Amino acid sequence: KEQQNAFYEILHLPNLTEEQRNGFIQSLKDDPSVSKEILAEAKKLNDAQA
């Protein structure tokens, strides 16, 4: 469930490039146990690119 939530949120971050988004999603698939950390990174990058 946590992985699904992170997946959904990353898909809807407006400021990520397609490449960045795909990278985060691939990381989620590779290691779902760190989905919280991956989501935090994605949000940080999204904010930095706002």
Results as ranks from 00 to 15, higher is better:
37 E>R: 10
32 P>W: 13
43 K>W: 14
32 P>E: 08
30 D>P: 03
27 S>C: 03
19 E>W: 15
37 E>A: 08
21 R>W: 02
49 Q>I: 08
11 L>H: 12
15 N>G: 06
32 P>Q: 05
33 S>D: 11
7 F>C: 07
42 A>T: 01
30 D>F: 12
36 K>I: 12
26 Q>R: 07
32 P>K: 07
11 L>Q: 08
23 G>Y: 15
37 E>V: 10
50 A>Y: 12
13 L>C: 02
43 K>I: 10
28 L>V: 07
18 E>C: 07
42 A>F: 01
45 L>V: 11
33 S>H: 07
9 E>G: 06
20 Q>N: 02
16 L>D: 00
45 L>F: 07
4 Q>W: 11
22 N>C: 09
27 S>Y: 09
25 I>H: 06
6 A>W: 14
50 A>C: 04
44 K>V: 10
20 Q>M: 04
2 E>P: 15
19 E>G: 04
30 D>G: 13
8 Y>S: 04
28 L>N: 01
33 S>E: 07
35 S>Q: 07
37 E>G: 10
11 L>N: 09
39 L>G: 02
41 E>L: 14
9 E>D: 05
16 L>W: 00
39 L>Q: 04
37 E>W: 15
24 F>M: 04
44 K>I: 11
50 A>R: 05
4 Q>M: 08
37 E>D: 05
18 E>T: 08
48 A>F: 11
38 I>D: 00
16 L>A: 00
23 G>P: 02
50 A>D: 10
38 I>S: 02
26 Q>H: 12
13 L>I: 02
6 A>N: 06
30 D>M: 14
3 Q>L: 06
32 P>T: 04
11 L>T: 05
33 S>P: 05
16 L>I: 08
27 S>V: 11
49 Q>T: 03
49 Q>V: 07
19 E>Q: 12
12 H>Y: 09
24 F>G: 00
4 Q>F: 09
12 H>G: 07
16 L>H: 00
33 S>G: 07
21 R>P: 00
21 R>V: 05
18 E>A: 08
30 D>T: 13
48 A>N: 11
17 T>K: 04
41 E>F: 15
42 A>Y: 01
48 A>P: 02
31 D>R: 09
39 L>T: 06
49 Q>K: 04
29 K>M: 14
18 E>V: 10
5 N>A: 13
19 E>M: 12
27 S>G: 07
47 D>M: 14
41 E>S: 14
46 N>L: 01
40 A>F: 14
16 L>N: 00
35 S>N: 06
31 D>K: 14
20 Q>I: 02
46 N>M: 02
39 L>H: 03
45 L>T: 07
6 A>G: 04
23 G>M: 15
